[in-house]
Amino acid sequence: MKSIKVSILGKQYPLKVEDHEEEAMIKICSYVDERFKNYRQQLVKQPESTVMVLAALSIAEELFEARRANSELEDNEEALMERVNHSLERLLTEIKE
């Protein structure tokens, strides 16, 4: 495990990550920090906790949308494979006859 420090909304957070995860974690933290800053600019009068919750909900919404899109792709791929398999089975049956 490796210790790193990341900054989110100007606050330092120590994290422990596997060596191979360091670059990805830094990118993730940078993304979260940028989203929090964008919400902070839009919601100047709101408490920091509100800004962070709304930004976290927005990030979670992105995640759920990406998961839904990925699931649809997998479903489409599975349906396509079933059609291909059915066509191959039919072709093999025709060849045998």
Rank of each mutant, 00 (worst) to 15 (best):
44 V>Q: 15
18 E>T: 07
38 N>L: 11
59 I>A: 05
8 I>Q: 02
6 V>M: 00
4 I>T: 00
75 D>A: 15
61 E>N: 05
39 Y>S: 01
12 Q>M: 03
90 R>H: 14
59 I>R: 06
57 L>M: 14
26 I>R: 14
75 D>P: 04
91 L>R: 06
49 S>M: 09
49 S>R: 07
71 S>R: 10
88 L>K: 08
18 E>D: 07
72 E>T: 11
6 V>L: 02
71 S>N: 12
88 L>V: 06
96 K>S: 15
90 R>M: 11
63 L>M: 15
30 S>G: 11
53 V>N: 06
80 L>I: 10
35 R>W: 03
26 I>F: 08
17 V>L: 05
5 K>S: 15
58 S>N: 12
32 V>D: 01
86 H>M: 08
55 A>N: 01
59 I>W: 02
63 L>E: 06
39 Y>M: 03
64 F>M: 13
1 M>D: 10
38 N>F: 13
36 F>Y: 00
12 Q>H: 07
68 R>P: 00
4 I>A: 02
68 R>K: 10
29 C>M: 14
68 R>N: 05
79 A>W: 04
57 L>G: 07
81 M>F: 07
32 V>F: 03
8 I>D: 02
39 Y>P: 01
3 S>W: 03
18 E>G: 08
30 S>Y: 11
94 E>Q: 13
61 E>D: 15
20 H>T: 07
58 S>Y: 06
85 N>C: 06
1 M>A: 15
